[in-house]
Amino acid sequence: MISDDLQSIFDSDDSGLLDAPEKTVKLTSSDRLERSFLEIVSFYREHGRIPRSDTREIAERKLGARLDGILANDEKIAALAHLDEFGLLVVPEPPRSIDELLENDDLDLLDDTSGLLDTSDLPSRAPRSEPDAIAQRVKSADFAAFEPLFKQKHAELAAGVSKLIDFPGEKYVKEGAFFVLAGVMAFVAEVREPAEEGGAKERLRCIFENGTESSMYRRSLATRLYEARRKNEGSYAVINAELDGILDDDQHTGYIYVLKSLSDDPQISSIEDLYKIGFTTGSVEKRIEHAADQPTYLMAPVEVVVWFPPNRGGFPRRLPVR
């Protein structure tokens, strides 16, 4: 019980010096969110527009950035809906078509007074012919000439002489190359010159092991190989097993040949496995043209056993006896 003297002191405190301070109410995250949005509402009430986040006015820019953050969060929009007296949190529906966009251009921002968008006088464009529509696979009339190449390549793969690598790129699509496209082996039998097609694109003659062929563009084949690799459908290049990859920078400089003498001299003909290995930068045919008159060929005609680099399909060529 407070004594009369102490009570008289409290009663005489006209300035409120002895009043106990009120306890501060702790703000919640919801309270802070609402207060921050009400500042945006006050700005709109005062200026008649929403605050911009790209202005140089720091105070307005802060409010604009705050509003952008709220509009990007559905939970915040739902929590502040009861305070949105000006519809600041209503996100407009995007136009469903170009025509609808132009119809809603109330400020004529898209009005073309210069006629730049008028295409009525432009010539009509011819429909583009897609290579895939032109280069359909057809039955190969001379597939019998290529079938041994596929059998040989499969035998090399089984023996480990050749191997499969991931398709390395369009620049490796060359004449004589083997690929596997979606599980089917393909052989580039010919790369035609661009001039024959009347343009810069090179068209291939591509033989498939199922007896069909296609005259697709080089880029079309590369695109299909890339697509098959992306879908894990089987897309590979077939190369020599001793190589780490296709050697694109190698340059063809000549031919290595193996010859067997057809001399009737007993001292020569009695020697088994007697061969001559040589190299020429020209053609092998030209090099051995006069073999019977040259000491290097033992003054006798020769038989060409084999010569490299190989012809299409990976097989060395054989030449008639000279």
Results as ranks from 00 to 15, higher is better:
residue 128 R to E: 15
residue 138 V to M: 09
residue 136 Q to Y: 06
residue 157 L to I: 08
residue 132 D to V: 13
residue 137 R to L: 04
residue 135 A to G: 00
residue 155 A to R: 08
residue 159 A to V: 04
residue 144 A to C: 06
residue 144 A to T: 12
residue 152 Q to K: 15
residue 138 V to G: 07
residue 144 A to M: 08
residue 150 F to K: 03
residue 145 A to I: 08
residue 157 L to Q: 04
residue 135 A to M: 00
residue 161 V to Y: 05
residue 158 A to I: 07
residue 160 G to D: 02
residue 136 Q to K: 11
residue 133 A to C: 05
residue 135 A to L: 00
residue 154 H to L: 07
residue 131 P to A: 08
residue 128 R to S: 12
residue 141 A to W: 12
residue 136 Q to W: 05
residue 158 A to H: 07
residue 154 H to I: 10
residue 139 K to I: 14
residue 141 A to F: 13
residue 156 E to Q: 13
residue 143 F to E: 00
residue 134 I to T: 07
residue 141 A to V: 14
residue 128 R to H: 14
residue 160 G to A: 02
residue 145 A to F: 12
residue 131 P to Y: 07
residue 142 D to E: 07
residue 131 P to G: 05
residue 132 D to S: 14
residue 147 E to Q: 15
residue 138 V to E: 12
residue 154 H to D: 07
residue 155 A to N: 07
residue 151 K to W: 04
residue 131 P to N: 14
residue 132 D to E: 15
residue 157 L to F: 02
residue 152 Q to L: 12
residue 140 S to G: 04
residue 148 P to W: 11
residue 132 D to K: 12
residue 137 R to M: 06
residue 128 R to F: 15
residue 130 E to D: 13
residue 135 A to N: 03
residue 146 F to G: 01
residue 135 A to P: 00
residue 159 A to D: 09
residue 144 A to H: 14
residue 132 D to H: 11
residue 128 R to I: 15
residue 160 G to I: 04
residue 159 A to F: 02
residue 153 K to A: 13
residue 156 E to S: 05
